[in-house]
Write a protein that binds this DNA or RNA. Structure first.
Length: 177
DNA sequence: CGGATTTGACCGGCGC
DNA sequence: GCGCCGGTCAAATCCG
């Protein structure tokens, strides 16, 4: 495996951190093992502050946000893959943070107690079932929370041909200061 | 024309 | 059983 993480943008460094966390804790990814849980707190450079992990809580600044784990267990012996999820929050003007993967939106729902909708995306790479959701906080609409579910088993497919995208993100990045 | 998005319907789990 | 809720499907639509 090559380097799956891009480091071009603020968004992607956040995601890279996520990926690192994920690989560290779940590599191997046996479906049945909820063995490797990472309870790490990690602070990415800059505007990224969150962390967490799969089981239940996210440490967000000073509050604890609960993340419900989707337990996909079917009846009986069927071991269904339990989905580790991890969320990130970052300050950004835009919802779409470019992490280098191609995503297809497949749903959007209103979120209770939140005036912003949540968007659901799936990785478009064939055979890759990674999903993510993106939502913005009502409380502080400058914050975008991205929740990932699953692991990419393939390299990033997007190249750096898209300078405009990258530029726009860098811009956002600098807006933070 | 083909792939991505939109958007209401649908579905399964859970609490009452 | 019923209704709510979070999540997903899929047909219609959009767009390059």
């Amino acid at each position: 495996m090559e380097n799956h993480h891009g480091f071009f943008t603020a968004g992607s460094s956040a995601l890279s951190a996520a990926a690192a966390l994920e690989y560290g804790g779940f590599h191997g990814g046996k479906g049945d093992g909820l063995s490797g849980l990472i309870m790490e707190q990690m602070r990415a450079p800059d505007n990224l502050n969150v962390i967490f992990q799969n089981g239940s809580f996210v440490h967000e600044n000073n509050k604890l946000v609960k993340i419900t784990e989707t337990k996909m267990e079917t009846k009986k012996g069927e071991k269904k893959v339990r989905n580790p999820r991890f969320a990130f929050q970052t300050r950004s003007q835009v919802d779409i943070l470019d992490d280098g993967y191609r995503w297809r939106k497949y749903g959007q729902k209103a979120v209770k107690n939140n005036k912003f909708p949540r968007s659901y995306y799936r990785c478009t790479h064939q055979g890759c079932s990674v999903k993510k959701q993106i939502q913005r906080l009502t409380k502080d609409e400058g914050i975008v929370v991205t929740t990932y579910e699953g692991m990419h088993s393939h390299p990033i497919q997007k190249s750096n041909d898209n300078f405009e995208h990258i530029l726009s993100q860098m811009q956002i990045y600098t807006n933070q200061h």
